[in-house]
Simulated scan of single mutants.
Amino acid sequence: MQKAIYFMPDISGFTNFVNNTEVEHSIHIIAELLEILLDNNTLGLELVEIEGDALFMYVTNIPSYNELMKQVTIMHEAFHKHTQNYDSLRICNCGSCKTTTNLELKFLVHYGDLNFIKVKHITKPYGRDVIKIHRLLKNKITYDEYVLFTNSVFELFENQTHDSWEKTTEDYDLISLVYFYKNLGSVKFKIQKLNPLSEEHIDKPILTIEKTFNANIETIYSYITELKHRHLWDKEVKRIEYDASKVNRIGTEHNCILNLGSLKFETITEPSSDSLTYGEKTKEMKFTRDFSYLIKLNKIDANNTKVVLNIYITFSTIGTFMKNNILKLVTKMWNKKLDDLHEISKKENSIINSHNE
Rank of each mutant, 00 (worst) to 15 (best):
E145V: 05
E166A: 08
R128K: 14
L136D: 06
V178D: 14
D173N: 13
Y172W: 12
K140V: 05
K118Q: 12
T123L: 04
K132I: 05
L148C: 07
P125M: 00
H121Y: 07
E199R: 02
L103W: 11
I131S: 07
I202M: 03
E155P: 01
K106G: 03
F213T: 03
T169F: 12
K118E: 14
Y143D: 06
E200W: 02
L194V: 11
F154N: 11
N151C: 01
K132N: 07
N115C: 07
T169H: 09
Y179M: 04
Y181A: 07
L197M: 13
L197D: 13
F116P: 01
Y146W: 09
L103G: 09
Y143H: 08
E166G: 02
V187H: 11
V130E: 04
G112R: 04
S198E: 09
I141G: 05
R128H: 13
W165I: 01
H121N: 15
Y179C: 08
L156A: 10
P125L: 00
T208A: 00
I133N: 04
N159W: 08
F189I: 14
W165Y: 13
K106F: 02
H162E: 11
K193Y: 02
H201L: 08
K211N: 13
K211Q: 15
V178I: 13
S152K: 15
I202W: 06
L197H: 11
T169D: 12
L184T: 15
F213N: 06
V153Q: 05
N139S: 07
K132H: 05
V130I: 09
E200F: 03
K118V: 02
N195G: 09
H121I: 02
T123Y: 02
I117D: 00
K118M: 01
L108F: 09
I131C: 03
N159F: 11
S164C: 06
D113Q: 07
L136C: 04
G127H: 13
D129G: 00
V147L: 06
L137K: 09
E104F: 02
G127P: 05
S176F: 09
I175G: 10
N139I: 09
L137D: 03
G127C: 03
V187Q: 15
S164D: 11
H134R: 10
K138W: 10
L174A: 08
L103C: 01
L108P: 01
I131L: 06
F116E: 04
L207Q: 08
I191P: 11
S176E: 15
I209C: 05
G185L: 13
D203E: 13
H110K: 07
F189N: 14
F154H: 12
E166T: 15
E158G: 00
V119I: 15
